Simulated assay, not measured.
Amino acid sequence: MQVRQIVEIAPDAAGLVLIPIMGAALCAGFPSPADDFLEGSLELPRWLAPNPPATFAWNISGDSMRAAGIFDRDLAVVDRSLKAGNGSVVVAAIDGEMSIKRLRIEGSVARLAFDNPDLPAFAVQEAAEGEIWGVVRFTIRWHVARAGLMR
């Protein structure tokens, strides 16, 4: 049996980047009004955010993406430099409101789908205005109560 050694990545200052956290929650459901301001920043290793100027973090509100493993109060790290493809989890501006959805491309029709079988997908063309804003690179989920961390 082969034993693998776990190598820890050293957290040196040169390898850390600051990613802005958007102030309004990203809707994991139907879009809701959002504020256009920054809430703060998140310090990440560069290997998690290889393109810092194009990377943002958003708080998630709602659970319509639960089949994708994205839940209410998670933090999604979004990269605007990545090209979205069929099956990508994306942040989309739908009629001017930011929302998280799964991109489904069927032939020449692009649809934005919830990862919840109870909610229907809709064609991007059905929205008065729709734009893929970025691709979700990963999410962060708290596994302990957040209130317990505030001391």
Rank of each mutant, 00 (worst) to 15 (best):
A93E: 10
A93L: 08
A93W: 05
A93T: 13
A93S: 13
I94E: 06
I94C: 09
D95W: 03
D95C: 05
G96M: 02
E97I: 00
E97P: 00
E97T: 00
M98H: 03
M98S: 04
M98Q: 00
S99Y: 00
I100P: 01
K101T: 11
K101R: 14
R102I: 10
R102Y: 11
R102C: 03
R102T: 10
R102N: 08
L103Q: 03
R104K: 11
R104P: 05
R104V: 11
I105A: 09
I105F: 04
I105R: 01
I105V: 09
G107N: 12
G107E: 04
G107L: 07
G107A: 04
G107S: 03
S108L: 07
S108K: 13
V109Q: 03
V109A: 08
A110F: 11
R111L: 03
R111D: 02
L112A: 06
A113Y: 04
A113Q: 03
F114Q: 11
F114R: 13
D115G: 09
N116T: 10
N116E: 06
P117C: 05
P117T: 14
P117Q: 06
D118F: 11
D118C: 07
D118K: 14
L119Y: 15
L119H: 15
P120L: 06
P120D: 09
A121I: 00
F122M: 04
F122S: 02
F122Y: 02
F122N: 04
F122L: 07
A123P: 13
A123C: 13
A123I: 13
V124C: 06
V124I: 14
V124W: 09
Q125T: 15
Q125R: 15
E126C: 09
E126D: 15
A128M: 13
A128D: 12
A128L: 05
A128G: 15
E129K: 09
E129Q: 15
E129G: 12
E129F: 06
E129N: 15
